[in-house]
Nucleic acid binder design. Structure first.
Lengths: 211, 211, 211, 211
DNA sequence: AATGAATGAGACTTCATTCAT
DNA sequence: TATGAATGAAGTCTCATTCAT
């Protein structure tokens, strides 16, 4: 991390910043914003407390940046799922069902849940996080999905309808029941139940939107 | 201790407890669990700090009881909406649409949103709240809705399907988009948008479930 | 405790006061002055908190009166031991040894220890308690012992010496080692060790004071 | 962190810790454990309240460490007195009397009294302090004294006897009367009375133990 | 006379944040 | 730049004591 003269390299600085942000999200996700303390973040990151302040200012900023970074990470994974939509060549039902299953899985994963939990929790103190995070996660997903659904409409495989609304509803049919059944992540959903949710959502969606 | 004096005292005690619980929910909803402080709860309730402790023990218990009480309040209002389902005599579409509109309204109201926000926020520290609150609010609503949908199936107005799943989906189609559009309550939804959400949800639901 | 008209009798009042004082000493002895709380005293006494205040004013006064009462109780038992000194008719060694044994036993008993502990503990806050309590316990004992030793001097069985000093020393030879060995009451002394202490004290005393 | 800066820092830390411990003993001795408050300790030590917590954890640990440190200090002074026993070359009576006088002086000094008072006071809450403190003060003194008395026995200047018991008794003859006369430190003993006590103790001891 | 309820004051402890090295 | 140490501010909770019945 240091060059021959002992000065920190740019790379080293960045690594340390990443380590801090990652540690911060870890701690915030476990404890929540207020109960989390900077000391623990520093400890998990393997640096001293003032170093956290040097890199990221105060706790609020640390939180914002950590959420941002986490949202980016989650988004990357989400987008990989959306890529699958490209392969909707064969049977519509089967294809959508497969994508749906992947999406519930992702949305029920710890990173997504933690992100969602924290955004909900701190919406009062950090209202801008809703935009910041949702835009990169659920919003981005809905957008990509809408794009694809529009395509399917044009291809005559779905009836004409506002693709944004359709996408929103499809996602709601997935995440709503998943959150309810998992009791907000308290109960781990068995794969079968997850698949059932995906199936039911797809079924309802196709019935309502098939051409 | 007896009769008029006794009843007055007991009533006074209960009133004070209610005042504290109401104040507590108010403060917790505004600040979140950790940042809320008992002093403010006491102030809002118009009592001295130790009185809060006398009545409700410690901060954790105060929180739990306040959430419970708030959930009861919200539930009562929710159930009034569900009553409307009885009047689904005429046009199915119109009837469901009307009920849907009322339900999004209720779910987007401050009490509901605050409750949901707090449950999400503190699910890590108070996992039992999910059951406690959801059972009285969303769960109760879904149940009542399921009952009614089952009836409609028997009457041949909806196709045969698991009414629990149908209810869950109907609610998801309402609350999912509402949460997304209102940015978790950050943005106040105009009545027109709320109605549009209700309409879209009803439309999709009827298409998927009509007999 | 109440007469036919329901008024508390004088006897009832006194009983209640005694109950409170006894409970108070019990609690103070267990917890110490500051950590003891009036609520527990009231509970042990089986009365309500304000009743304690009605009868005994504030916590300080409650403590003083409780100590006084406990000192009286301990004194009574001590004096019974001193009575034994009258029977010092036969062998001096044996007689003194017997009395010594009884005295260490008494001094190591819980009431005596608690009293001593509390006086030591609160000598800073309640300096007058030293006089008040010591006068009735150790002081009274020393005095009685001195009287008896003076008699033995006159009878020519002990050499001439200040009987007050002699008594003081005899008691010190008993209680000093007992306190040290029992680690201030932390360790329960077996009867054999108690007897050994009494024997050693008597032996030294007789060697030093025999005529 | 290295060399001069390092040593200075470490030394500074230690100094601060010592200052806190010393201040703590001061405050505890004046007020007792429970009434003492950490704020005053911090003030007396000239540091901020959290610094006390940084260095010593909580109040209980602060108390224990302060007692330990104070016991060490007292012990050092006690042992200097015991050293005097080496010079028991001339007249036994005179030599012992001299040592006795020094010992009562030490035992009646504020540090000793405060230590004793606190141990007595808190034996209920901190039972391990008895061992911890007594071992370093009275116990250590008794041991050293016993060693010396054993030597005197071997030299034929004292009769054969258990030196531990003899030492214990000698100390009891000194401290018992001193505590009684000073009313547990409430009354300041004039030098003459202190000397009289030392003389009387020595006299009795020599009569009982001289060869 | 006795009690359920209420409160003012204060204690311990934690934590975000800043110095000084 | 990174850190060990220090601190101001704040929060939970307890308790002696007093009202009102």
């Amino acid at each position: 991390m240091t060059d021959s003269a002992g000065r920190a390299t740019a790379r080293g600085r960045i690594d340390k910043r990443q380590a801090i942000l990652s540690a911060a999200f870890d701690v915030f996700a476990r404890r929540g914003y207020a109960p989390a303390n900077v000391a623990e973040v520093a400890e998990v990151a393997g640096v001293a407390k003032p170093t956290v302040y040097n890199h990221l200012g105060d706790k609020e900023n640390l939180f914002r940046r950590a959420m941002e970074a986490a949202a980016d990470t989650v988004m990357e994974r989400n987008l990989r799922d959306v890529e699958r939509l490209r392969t909707l060549e064969g049977d519509l039902r089967a294809g959508l069902g497969d994508v749906a299953y992947r999406m519930v899985q992702t949305c029920c994963g710890e990173p997504s849940r933690a992100l969602r939990r924290l955004v909900h929790a701190e919406v009062g103190q950090f209202p801008e996080l809703v935009e910041l995070v949702q835009a990169r996660t659920a919003g981005r997903l809905a957008e990509a999905l809408a794009d694809r659904l529009a395509r399917l409409s044009l291809e005559g495989r779905l009836r004409a309808a506002d693709p944004a609304v359709a996408a929103e509803q499809f996602l709601s049919l997935l995440t709503g029941p998943a959150e309810a059944r998992s009791r907000l992540g308290t109960r781990k959903l068995p794969a079968a139940e997850l698949r059932a949710i995906a199936e039911a959502a797809t079924d309802t969606f196709v019935r309502a939107y098939a051409a």
